[in-house]
Computed example of a mutant assay.
Amino acid sequence: RAINAGGATKVALSGNWIGWLQSGNFYAKDGIHSQWLALAEGGQVSEIAVSGGGWFAFVGSGNYFAKQGAYAAWLTMAGGGQVSKIAVNG
């Protein structure tokens, strides 16, 4: 997946993982030479977080979602539309 190097509004780095927020969409890849994965699309993502242990998280429309593993299903961690900042460890 080609990502415009000038279009990121946020970048998150941890371990080998690179997270990228562009145009409200969350992309990630495992190391410089791997392909970009579209983790969350739809233009509603405002905050992202990644961990070296393979945890991914994002805020979309004020709700907090997380998952362990790039191909796992997203879990809703906090709803209600009031979340603005997140962090993941591990």
Rank of each mutant, 00 (worst) to 15 (best):
I86D: 01
A72R: 12
G79I: 08
G62F: 09
G79T: 04
G53L: 02
V59N: 00
G7F: 05
G43D: 01
L75G: 03
V50E: 00
G31D: 11
Q44F: 12
A28K: 12
Q82V: 08
S46I: 06
N63M: 00
A78M: 11
S23A: 06
A73Q: 12
M77S: 04
Q35H: 11
F58I: 10
G90M: 04
L39T: 03
Q44W: 07
E47Q: 10
N4F: 13
A66F: 03
F26H: 02
I18Y: 14
A87S: 10
F65A: 06
W74P: 08
G79L: 01
S46Y: 07
F58R: 10
G15D: 00
T76K: 01
A12K: 03
G81S: 07
A73S: 02
L39N: 03
E41Q: 10
E41T: 13
A72Y: 09
K10C: 06
N4G: 13
A66K: 00
G52P: 00
F65M: 02
V45R: 01
A49G: 07
A38V: 14
G7S: 15
Q68C: 10
N63A: 03
A87E: 12
G54Y: 04
G79N: 08
A28S: 12
V88F: 07
G43I: 07
F56N: 09
V83Q: 10
Y64M: 07
N89W: 13
K10V: 02
S61D: 09
K85Y: 13
V83C: 06
W36T: 11
G31Q: 08
S46M: 09
K29L: 00
I18F: 15
W55L: 12
L75C: 02
A70D: 01
I86T: 04
G53H: 11
G6F: 14
I3W: 15
N89I: 13
I3Q: 11
D30L: 08
G54C: 08
Q44L: 05
G24D: 04
S46L: 09
F58Q: 12
T76F: 13
K85A: 14
V50P: 00
A5I: 15
A38Y: 11
W17E: 03
W36E: 07
G6L: 14
W36F: 10
A73K: 09
W20K: 06
D30V: 05
G15Q: 07
K67C: 03
F58N: 12
T76Y: 12
R1V: 14
L39I: 02
F58H: 05
A57Y: 02
N16G: 08
A57G: 01
G42I: 05
A73W: 02
Q44H: 15
W74C: 01
T76R: 09
W20N: 10
G54M: 07
Q82M: 02
I48E: 06
W20Y: 13
A5M: 12
E41D: 11
Y71N: 11
G80M: 12
S34W: 14
E41P: 05
A2Y: 15
N16C: 05
S14L: 03
L13T: 11
